[in-house]
Structures are given as C-alpha cells and as structure tokens.
Design a protein around this nucleic acid. Structure first.
Lengths: 327, 327
DNA sequence: ATCAAAGTTGTGAGCGCTAACAATTGCATC
DNA sequence: GATGCAATTGTTAGCGCTCACAACTTTGAT
C-alpha cells in the first residue's frame, strides 16, 4: 500500500480512502491512485484489514446432506449471492448431525471469525444447540425453524403438500396415503402436516402414513408393501427419489400408475419428468431460497435491521402419474 | 492473549508457544496456560495470525455444476478432508464457465489470500487460464487435465468406459453405440475414448456416437431416435441421468431393455438401482476423489513435495439393463 | 483583504499475533 | 561452589491496514 502511495504521490491513508470509497477524495487524486493500483497490480491484504475492522467478509455455511438435490442447490444460491455481495463463503458440511458435530463446526466458524452464518440443517433441535451462537454472530436458517427470529427463507412446504393432496382430491381420490421423510426432518414434518391438513379440510381421515428415509431404496421397499395391500388409490410421496422407488415397485408388482394408483412426488428434480411414467410433483426453487437467505443476512449485517422471514411458494407440476379415480 | 498470559502468569509469547505446539515449553507452564485458555474461553484471532504468518489456513474450491451428482460429492470430500486438517474451505461456484468468470473467481481467492486451490471444472481450456495462478498459489485439479503437474486425483474414466463396453462385448454385442456427454467436458471425452478403445481392441468399428448434454431430457430425445433406427444392440450412456431418459424413451417406443437392447450407464447414482429396469452402470467414488485431492494439496503446502497424481479405479455394477445378445 | 467553514490530505497509533533475539533459569560437570 | 550449556521464558519489533485526529487548502461570504 505504501508503494501505491509513493507511485501516486500521496499518503497511504489516501490510498486507503480510495479503496474504501470515502467521499472526501478529489477526483484527480482518486484517478491517480487507481492508476497506481492497476499499474502495480496491488491487492489489499484481507488479514490486515480484518484485524482492524474486526470483520472477515466471510459468511459461514453450515449444512448437512449437502450433496442432496435440495441442499446442494440452496448452497449454490447462497454461495452466488454472497460472492456477488463481495463476501467469501466458508462451507462446513456435517457428515452426521449431532450436537457435537454442530458445535465443532461452529467453533470452526468462530475461529475463522465469520461475519454471519447460514444454517441448512433441516433437523429440529439443531437450533437449541445454536442458541448461544446467535448472540455472537448473526445467524439465519434456511427452512422453517421453531424460532421465529432465526428463520430466514422458507419454502412453504406445508402449502406444497396441500397443493399435491388437493390435486388428488380433485381427481376424486378418497384414500390418499403418504410416504413421508424421516420424522426428524423439519421439511418432512411440514409436508406430512400439509397432507393431513388437506385431508382434514376435505373431511377425510388421514390414514396410511408411512415414514420413509428419502431414499429410492426405501420407496421401493414400501412401494412393494403398498402394492400388496392395495388399500389406497393415491399416494403422496415426500420426495422424488422415494417416488422413483415406489414407481419401480408398483411396476414390478403389476400395479398400474396412474390407472390403479396415482402418485405425487415432491421437489421436481429435473429427472422427475423422465420417470416411467413422468412424475406429477411439487416444484420448489432452492436456489432462490439460498439467495433470499443471504439477502436477509446481509441486511442484518449491514443495516442491523431484522428483516422478516421470506416465504417462497411451491408450485404443482402435473404430469402423468395422476389420473381421476376409476374404480 | 494478553489476558490469558496474565491469568497463567506468563508472557503472551509463552501463550503463543503453547498454541503453536512449540517444543520448548515446560509441561507445568503448558498446563497452566491451557487451563487459562479454557477458563477464559480464549480464541486466537485468525486475522492477526494470518497477517504475520502470511498464511490464511484457507483452501479455495473452484467448481462448476456444483449441484450435479459428481461435483457435489467431490466437494463434500474436499471439504471434509480440508476441515479435518484444520483448514477453512472457501467455495466459489461458477454459473457459467468462461475465462472471465474463472478469472473473477480466482481474483476472489487471491483477495482472500487462500493457501491453496482445488479446481473442479471439468472443461479443457480451464487450465490455460489458470496457468499464471499456479505460480502464485499451489493448485490441484480434480480429474485429468492436459497438464501433468496440475492434476491431483482422477477417476480413471477411460478405464471405466472400457469396463462397460467390455461387459457388453462379453455378452456378444457387436453394435455398441455411445451417447456421450458434451465434447467440452474432459470426462465426457475420456469416456468416449474408453468406448472407442474397447471397440477397437475387439476389432470392431466405433460407429453410432451421439453427443448428449448429460440431461435426462437429452437422453430421452436421443433414445427416441435410437429406438426408431434400431441400428444397435447395446448402448453405452455416459451418465445415469441420460440413461434414465433413454430407458423412458425405449419404454415408450416399445423397445425392450435388455431383450432388444442393452444399456449401460455411468456414475452409479443411488437412484440407478431403482430405474426400470435397474441400471447396469459404472461406480466411482467421488468423495474419495475429493479427499485424495486435498491430501495431495496439503502435502504440497506443508512439505513442498510435488506428490504424484492419484488415480481412483471405477467399478462395474451389473444390474438388469444388460443381457446376452439374443437376435 | 479577512475570516470561517468545508473539503482534502497527512500523521501517529494500534488491531493481535509471531519471529528473532535477549535474558533468565535449571542442571550437570568439574 | 563456580562454570558452561541447554532448556525455558521474556522483550521488542513489525506484519498491512484503518481510525482518530491534526494540518493544510480551497471556497465564498463579509
């Protein structure tokens, strides 16, 4: 920086002012400094800057299952938005979610001195562990959380599930089962609730709730059982991967989709349109979710304002696995 | 740090020595200092440390298509291994891969002062842009690259493709087509070459090469054409997603798999086992790839040694989309 | 011409840490 | 008990930057 100052014929402080866009620098000086900067290929030292400003320009992203469709896309959105705003993004993925691993990752972030944290850990209870962190560093969660002021952006999954079930209801179905995600996932619970709500509103009893684990394998196994029982005419599956397994099981068991049973998935992965048959499902924009989250966090960081949580609306995509009831 | 020193009754320098595991500290003093540290909940300031050591303990990960199956798992491995080694991981995902976006991301990393960089951009030419960076910061690439000394860990994709085609050959197939990935992907080219090699070795002419774009949609569209032509008895598809589309197209067109045509995929995503029919494919361990890469990079960082690139072997997984030729 | 107010630039200190060196202590040897 | 050497601890400087404040320059009103 001293070198730049020398070349531009000013003091190091003026260079600093130019770098930080301080108002009181004459245009001529600013230009001279900027030229010196490019000429010398000067880069400001982040460490030194952080040391005195006490800000690292870094946002920590804590996530689990980061290779899954939803989380990976959320991360993409978060990362892009943060980088566009000039922040660095530090990622910590959790192999397994326990209070210890969460605390470890948080210690990691605190060591790094992150300015803010985004959490994409879709399990309830996570936030009890995180309570004391919130006091030290602004923290925003992706997805709904028990705590109102923690939550950043959410896809209204309950609404999405309701959409799916209402579609089934409109087709005349009365026996609508649900293959849910694991009960320790916030999203899974929300989708199950949406299913239950829609059924109740229609005066139907929510029966046939099966808990799955998101995997195609589980969808297949449960699908086999459902095929054997033939107790329902429609099935709402909590994600597309399980739906794939279900479709395969039904195919094997000779249960025709949608003639014998209708199936609706959730997520709208790009592959869903190429399942056999193409899957009716609920689309949600994970990238937008991530971007919104960063938007909120940055507001909080830069203006101190506690913005209201954002809700992103899901959308029903009707394809070929649903049909009016025939029997 | 001064506070810790006071509590422990030593100088700040001794505290620093304890923190850095310097040898010449008496056990008693060390214990006293450590106790003071936990007592005060002291955290060393990374910025100050970086300022003087000129190391940020941060590794930058540059990637594109980070939400895809392969890249996202690689990122997971990289991230975990780096964090285990006490490094921070800074991620920059490229929405589109152009010299400009790559340079931008690199500038981002240089600003941050990363100690090393891992690149997961599977396009040739990327590394021409990166040439001048290598001089400044150790850089390791995931996947094969033209440049020998850049490349870190690779899955031997050529070998994987050969495995797939040999399997088909053993089943008696003579007309084996290939639906490849985009020609501007290094991996796609390697797989195509493996296919061509295996065919040539068997004295067969590699015909019917179709270039795809990795998507299920493209697999579907091309699958429809292939079904209409009926010019091959087996198809080697460069990834599982396209294979899904192909399977769907064949199903629609009344082409039976594997009776009429055998299909082999690539990647072995967890879903592949639940396709209709379950997909024969080539498995590769992306997480291991990422871990190995970090291993190599850290070696380079800490010992200065230029380790040799690691090659991870892929594995053929035979399921139900391949059968001996019948016609 | 004179002064105050605003705009512009420079100076010095210090953020929290580590490296190099200086000073002290302990311990074996004579 | 004196001496030398190694092990341990303390002292000082400075990494590159921003902040607070001081100093200087311009401008415009009197």
């Amino acid at each position: 920086m001293e070198d730049v100052a020398r070349v531009a014929g000013v003091s190091h402080q003026t260079v600093s002012r130019v770098l930080n866009n301080h108002p009181n620098v004459s245009t001529k000086t600013r230009e001279r400094v900027e030229q010196a900067i490019t000429e010398l290929g000067y880069r400001r030292n982040t460490a030194a800057r952080s040391l005195v400003t006490r800000r690292s320009q870094t946002i920590g992203v804590l996530g689990s299952e980061l290779a899954q469709y939803g989380p990976s896309h959320t991360l993409l959105g978060v990362q892009q938005a943060a980088r566009d705003a000039g922040y660095f993004v530090s990622v910590a993925g959790l192999r397994e979610v326990t209070p210890e691993t969460i605390k470890d990752a948080m210690a990691h972030f605190m060591d790094q001195g992150v300015d803010g944290i985004v959490v994409t850990v879709p399990h309830p209870g996570t936030f009890d562990v995180l309570k004391d962190i919130t006091a030290q560093v602004p923290l925003v969660a992706v997805g709904s959380v028990g705590d109102e002021h923690l939550s950043g952006a959410t896809v209204d999954q309950r609404e999405g599930a309701r959409l799916a079930v209402q579609h089934l209801l409109e087709l005349g179905h009365k026996h609508i089962g649900h293959l849910s995600g694991p009960a320790d996932w916030i999203d899974a619970v929300a989708r199950t609730e949406g299913w239950r709500d829609a059924l109740r509103e229609a005066g139907l009893e929510p029966a046939a709730l099966i808990e799955g684990d998101w995997s195609a394998e589980c969808g297949y196994l449960e699908g086999l059982k459902i095929a054997a029982e033939r107790s329902m005419t429609a099935l709402f599956v909590a994600n597309d991967q399980m739906a794939l397994g279900v479709l395969r099981a039904f195919h094997e068991a000779g249960v025709r989709v949608p003639a014998d049973i209708s199936v609706v998935g959730f997520d709208d992965q790009p592959e869903a349109a190429y399942f056999i048959p193409p899957l009716t499902t609920v689309a949600q924009d994970f990238e937008e979710l991530g971007e919104r989250c960063i938007g909120l966090l940055l507001d909080r960081l830069e203006t101190g304002a506690t913005g209201t949580p954002v809700t992103v609306k899901p959308r029903l995509v009707v394809r070929a696995t649903t049909a009016p009831i025939s029997s």
